[in-house]
Computed example of a mutant assay.
Amino acid sequence: MSPDHGARRSRVVLVEPALTQLEKLTGSETHRLDRAIVAISVNPEIGTPVPDTLLRDYVDDVDAVRVIYYVTALRTITIVAYVEA
C-alpha cells in the first residue's frame, strides 16, 4: 500500500514586476512572503478572484503580504505577477 501523500504543490514562477519588487524587500519581508507563496502553491484557490480576469488576489493580514497571481489550466504552475510586503 502506498503512503498517503498530501496535495501536490504547484510550481511557482515570479515574473516582472514581481521580481523587481522582490529585490526591494528586506529579509524579514521575504520570509513573510515565502509563507504566503507556499500557502498559494498548496491551495491556488486561496486568493480572491479579480473580476473579469484570470488573476487572483491573496492578502494575508497577519503577515502583511499581498500576492497577485494566476494558475495555469492544469494547476501545475502558479504565475506570480505582483508581490507586496
Score class of each variant (00 low, 15 high):
Pro3Ala: 14
Leu54His: 14
Tyr58Leu: 07
Gln21Arg: 15
Ala7Ile: 11
Ser41Val: 01
Ala18Cys: 04
Thr20Ala: 15
Thr53Gly: 04
Val12Tyr: 01
Ala39Val: 08
Leu22Pro: 07
Val15Ser: 05
Tyr58Val: 02
Arg11Asp: 07
Leu22Gln: 13
Ala73Ser: 15
Leu14Ile: 03
Ile77Glu: 08
Gly27Lys: 13
Leu14Phe: 06
Leu74Lys: 14
Lys24Trp: 10
Thr72Val: 04
Thr30Lys: 08
Val62Gln: 03
Pro51His: 06
Val12Gln: 00
Arg8Val: 09
Val71Ser: 09
Arg56Leu: 05
Asp60Leu: 07
Val50Phe: 09
Ser28Val: 13
Glu23Gly: 13
Val42Pro: 04
Val38Gly: 09
Glu29Gln: 13
Arg35Asp: 08
Arg56Tyr: 09
Ser2Asn: 14
Val15Met: 07
Asp34Val: 07
Ala85Glu: 10
Thr53Ser: 02
Val50Ala: 03
Ala73Pro: 01
Glu23Cys: 13
Tyr58Pro: 02
Ile77Cys: 03
Ala7His: 13
Gln21Trp: 09
Ala85Gln: 12
His5Pro: 02
Thr53Pro: 00
Pro49Asp: 10
Ile37Asp: 03
Val67Tyr: 04
Gly47Trp: 02
Ile68Arg: 13
Val62Ser: 02
Val80Met: 13
Arg11Phe: 01
Gly6Ala: 11
Thr76Gln: 13
Leu54Ile: 13
Thr78Arg: 03
Arg32Thr: 02
Arg75Lys: 10
Val71Glu: 11
Leu19Gly: 00
Val71Tyr: 08
Tyr70Gly: 12
Val13His: 00
Gly27Ile: 09
Thr53Asn: 00
Val12Glu: 01
Thr78Leu: 01
Tyr58Glu: 03
Arg11Tyr: 07
Gly47Glu: 06
His5Trp: 11
Gly47Lys: 02
Val42Leu: 12
Leu22Gly: 09
Asp60Phe: 00
Val83Gly: 08
Asp60Thr: 05
Ile79Arg: 11
Ala39Tyr: 06
Leu19Asn: 08
Ile77Gln: 06
Ser28Ile: 12
Ala85Met: 12
Ala18Asp: 02
Tyr58Trp: 07
Leu55Asp: 02
Tyr69Cys: 02
Ala39Gly: 06
Thr48Gln: 15
Pro51Asn: 08
Pro3Trp: 12
Leu74Asn: 15
Glu16Thr: 12
Leu25Thr: 01
Val42Asn: 04
Glu45Met: 14
Val15Ala: 05
Ser28Cys: 10
Val71Gln: 11
Ala39Trp: 06
Thr78Val: 11
Glu29His: 03
Arg32Gln: 13
Glu45Gly: 15
Gly6Arg: 03
Val80Asp: 08
Thr53Glu: 05
Ala39Pro: 03
Asp57Val: 03
Gly6Trp: 06
Leu14Val: 04
Val50Asn: 03
Asn43Asp: 09
Ala81Trp: 10
Leu33Pro: 00
Pro3Met: 14
Val83Asp: 09
Met1Ile: 09
Ile40Gln: 00
Val13Ala: 04
Pro44Cys: 00
Leu33Val: 00
Ala39Thr: 11
Tyr82Thr: 00
Gly6Lys: 08
Ile68Asn: 05
Thr76Arg: 09
Val15Thr: 05
Tyr69Gly: 01
Gly27Cys: 11
Leu74Met: 13
Leu74Ser: 13
Ser10Gln: 08
Ala81Ser: 14
Leu55Tyr: 04
Thr48Ser: 15
Leu25Ala: 06
Glu16Pro: 04
Arg66Ser: 06
His31Val: 10
Leu74Trp: 10
Thr20Tyr: 13
